[in-house]
């Protein structure tokens, strides 16, 4: 029977949301899980809302349709709170990880959510303080590692390092690793 943790990522073009979903899947895969990561492709515009998805399972995944009832929702961009319905298709056990300055109770009030569990992390601030740019994707990865419990933080750090080393100078890689670690420590629950 089909069993998987389904994750939906909400972000804006240019924030690395799709990259984060891919890296998260990769870490879970190295950790021995069957994984899928796929973006919702449309016209690619910086700043436009984008979605990406993960399926993570201990069983081989054959399903190939979109994710409609995620058990984890990751909101990478704070301005999506209150402007998009990122709770669509979720049930009362869903977990929400939101990049925001606010605490979980404030988010709950703002989106009028009953049930579910909300976690918050000020990933934009962390990315500004570490990387120097508002690209919160790696910080969100660190927070998600903590909240989901699906992957080990060491593994996430290894995978981010391996992926970034291919594309960026050592300094940028190190700053991103710092962002992952800080978010892992700083994420707040209810």
């Amino acid at each position: 029977m089909y069993e998987a943790t389904e994750i939906r990522w909400h972000g804006r073009g240019g924030q690395g949301t799709v990259t984060a979903a891919k890296l998260f899947a990769q870490s879970a895969m190295v950790g021995g899980k069957y994984v899928q990561a796929f973006p919702e492709f449309g016209p690619e515009r910086t700043g436009a809302p984008v979605k990406a998805y993960n399926r993570i399972s201990s069983k081989r995944l054959t399903i190939h349709c979109g994710v409609t009832n995620p058990s984890i929702v990751v909101v990478v961009d704070p301005t999506l709170v209150g402007t998009t319905d990122f709770t669509e298709g979720t049930d009362e056990k869903a977990v929400f990880l939101v990049n925001t300055k606010d605490d979980p109770a404030a988010v709950r009030k703002k989106i009028k959510l009953k049930g579910g569990r909300i976690y918050t992390i000020d990933a934009t601030r962390i990315s500004l303080e570490t990387i120097g740019k508002p690209i919160p994707n790696t910080a969100m990865l660190g927070a998600l590692a903590k909240v989901s419990g699906i992957v080990d933080i060491k593994r996430v750090l290894d995978d981010v390092k391996e992926d970034f080393e291919k594309k960026f100078p050592e300094k940028i890689t190190q700053k991103n690793l710092e962002a992952v670690k800080r978010a892992y420590e700083e994420v707040k629950g209810e």
Binding site: K22, A25, Q36, A37, F38, P39, F41, L61
Partner: peptide, 12 residues
């Protein structure tokens, strides 16, 4: 192979 579903997704 299927466009996007297979070609642009990460799969084990």
């Amino acid at each position: 192979m299927d466009g996007f579903i297979t070609s642009h997704a990460i799969d084990s």
